[in-house]
Amino acid sequence: MDVNVEQYVTIKFCQKAGFNATNTLEILTNVYSSSALKRTTVFGWFGRFCDGRESLYDDERPGHPVSTHFTENIAHVAIALKED
């Protein structure tokens, strides 16, 4: 499991258990030390769970796709590599 997702689970648990966001941040900092989520991230996710969110994963965002594969681009790169 991704470290961030582990921390989202902890945030969700703490919110459901009645902790506040500040206590949750302290718990995460004690457990994960330097790899703990930042304050704004913890408070943001805490608020989402307070609003009824159940998913632990980021929502899809509009914009450029993470990766694209176009046959013509691959061919151009292959030719450029051969010429170099």
Rank of each mutant, 00 (worst) to 15 (best):
A17H: 00
I79K: 07
F46V: 00
I74C: 14
K38C: 07
V3E: 09
K38E: 12
A17M: 02
T22Q: 15
Y57F: 15
N23V: 05
L28Y: 03
G18P: 03
T40F: 08
Q7L: 05
R39P: 04
Q15L: 05
E26H: 06
A21Y: 00
D58Y: 13
K12I: 03
S34N: 11
A80W: 03
V31K: 04
E6Q: 10
E60H: 11
D51S: 15
W45F: 06
Y32L: 00
T40P: 01
K82R: 14
N73I: 10
T41H: 03
D84L: 15
C50A: 14
S35M: 07
I74W: 08
F49Q: 02
T10C: 06
N4V: 12
L25Q: 04
L28C: 01
S55I: 04
G52H: 04
V77E: 12
L37H: 02
K82H: 08
A80S: 09
H64V: 15
G47F: 00
D84N: 15
T41Y: 06
V42W: 02
H76G: 07
I11E: 02
D51F: 07
C50Y: 06
R48W: 05
P62Q: 14
C14I: 03
R48H: 08
V31A: 06
I11M: 04
L81M: 13
G18H: 04
C14K: 02
T24Y: 04
G52I: 04
G63I: 15
R61M: 14
A17K: 06
G63P: 01
D58M: 14
G18R: 03
K12L: 04
R53G: 05
C50H: 07
V66Q: 11
E83N: 11
D59E: 13
S35Q: 11
E54I: 01
E6T: 02
V31T: 01
N4S: 08
K38M: 07
S55Q: 13
